[in-house]
Design a protein around this nucleic acid. Structure first.
Lengths: 151, 151
DNA sequence: TCTTTGAGTTCCCTCAAGGAACTCCGACTG
DNA sequence: CAGTCGGAGTTCCTTGAGGGAACTCAAAGA
């Protein structure tokens, strides 16, 4: 956990960082997404310290992003994404888009997405949930919302 | 910087984390986005340690996300987003969407987006860049891409 | 000349991350 | 039934990043 607590800030970005902003957390989510759901698998794949992996998994479970589920009568568990966690994958998809564009370089993207609806290899783009037109940072104005701190 | 170096991993998510995965970096970007472009402003607004702020800004400049620009003949600088950095704001927008939905609670979102194209208050949604239909994690298959490590 | 101000540096202290070894417990093996 | 295995953590030690306050530096202004 970063020393400063972001969860009290009046900002959805800061609050989100409080859930998955710690080092390794997004990579843990990525692995769970692609089916690496068990402690030993995650540890071996990521090369993360077992101590930190335990801390991260506990935090993600506490935050309701992952669910710890027994898969045997023995003390064996696997971690699965909740709905809240599945929603977070949007974030990973956008990180992938950006990394592919700016950091993949010569060899190109390590992973491709095939969209079920159209069957094509494609990438995710941000669109306005209302009108469907592209919606990136330069396309919007920011206004204070109901949850903004009182002046 | 997290102790383990993510930049060598064959994964666009890990590489992206290497650029903005450190604590505070996304919040610095957010502030620069909304016009807090100077060292003292950032430090005061975030309450971040000056030492860490210096480190983060240097890293973001090195990575080509921010540009350090003099705004006076005195040693005075401001930080502005490059194109690479502006592209990263997609990530902040998606974090905002998720945080608004899952963490804002009773008071509601602190910030609202008004979309220039349609003039409406709206949120960003992920769509297929090809066909335009919604594209979230359950809507895609993952395939190895050209940049995947050789087996 | 003295002060102010933006933009960092420096220094010390604490706590988180890395890493290896150790524990616990039910299940198989002979 | 004793011994072993394998998954899932704990414990412990060391290093180094983050917090915080004080200090520096250079140009402009009074």
């Amino acid at each position: 956990m970063q020393r400063t607590d972001f969860s009290r800030m009046v900002c959805s970005i800061a609050r989100t960082l409080d859930v998955i902003g710690e080092p390794w957390s997004p990579l843990i989510l990525r692995d769970v997404w692609v089916g690496m759901t068990r402690f030993e698998q995650l540890q071996a794949d990521l090369g993360i310290s077992r101590k930190v992996l335990t801390e991260r998994l506990n935090h993600l479970v506490e935050q309701g992003v992952l669910e710890r589920r027994p898969y045997d009568r023995r003390p064996r568990h696997e971690y699965v994404l909740t709905e809240k966690g599945t929603d977070l994958l949007d974030l990973l998809m956008v990180m992938t888009t950006w990394g592919d564009k700016w950091l993949a370089g010569e060899p190109g993207p390590p992973i491709l997405y095939r969209h079920h609806a159209c069957g094509e290899i494609s990438t995710a783009d941000l669109r306005c949930a209302g009108c469907g037109a592209p919606m990136h940072a330069p396309d919007i104005d920011l206004l204070p919302g109901p949850g903004a701190a009182a002046a």
